[in-house]
Amino acid sequence: MTDHISQANLNALADGELSSDQLSLVNDHLAACPACTSAALVQTLLKTNIAKAGQRYAMPAGLEERLKRLARSDTAGRARPSRRSAITGWATAAAILLVIFSGLILLLQGRRRSELAALEYQAQVSEVSDLHIATLAAGLGPQVVSSDRHTVKPWFQGKLPFSFNLPDNLPGDTKLDGANLTYLHNQPVAQLLYTIGRHRVSVFLTEKRSGEPTGEKQSEHSGFKVTSVGVGELDIVAVSDVDPFRLAELVSLIKNVQTGA
């Protein structure tokens, strides 16, 4: 790719919409073109800032309850029997059908829940990747600069509604650089900044969003590897361009130290 990256491709890069082939070409070009790198960073920062600024209007208190009531009265209104005798006559048949259909509905509900969970996971992957890219792009140091876990952890006291532990014995080429207080889905989270070799890593510690246990998941977004796992009341999400095995190793260390394993 000798020409500059088109505006459409810069947008697709920021939005995680490039195919792996396109991404490879774009990355090659970015490595040699400061102007396009700068333009790509602008798009990414703009996207991150607009995502935050766009979440502007909080839902008024009571709207959800009102809609629930409306939905129930709407459904009941449409389902109200006009002839009790007809219901009695068909009750047995309906009961049998309900048994069959309730099984099907439960299956469908399960499928929809997993679809929702998948969408939420994708959104989380996208948001943490954007935050990681924005951190790299800003070129600023961490808000708390220290490789000492006894300095980094206390820095979050009073800033986060949860607590966490940090591992002491990191592999030889892995180093804690510091941390930032940042926001995911409008919730304060800890962004721990590590270096593995020459690769930068962001590890986000967030309060678990659902009560369900979260197994380890691995994904890829905008060329970055994303590994996430849940432990206790915490979700751990790590983003980097390092070897996924090394990333998973770091996540595993952080996970184990939460439970004392």
Binding site: K68, A71, R72, T75, R78, A79, R80, P81, S82, R83, S85, A86, I87, G89, W90, A94, L98, F101, S102, I105, L108, Q109, R112
Partner: peptide
């Protein structure tokens, strides 16, 4: 006489719950 019941029964409770 049973048509009205048949029509109304197309909207069962679990569907509304799934929607919510």
């Amino acid at each position: 006489t049973l048509l009205s019941w048949k029509r109304e029964a197309q909207k069962p409770g679990p569907q509304a719950s799934a929607f919510e």
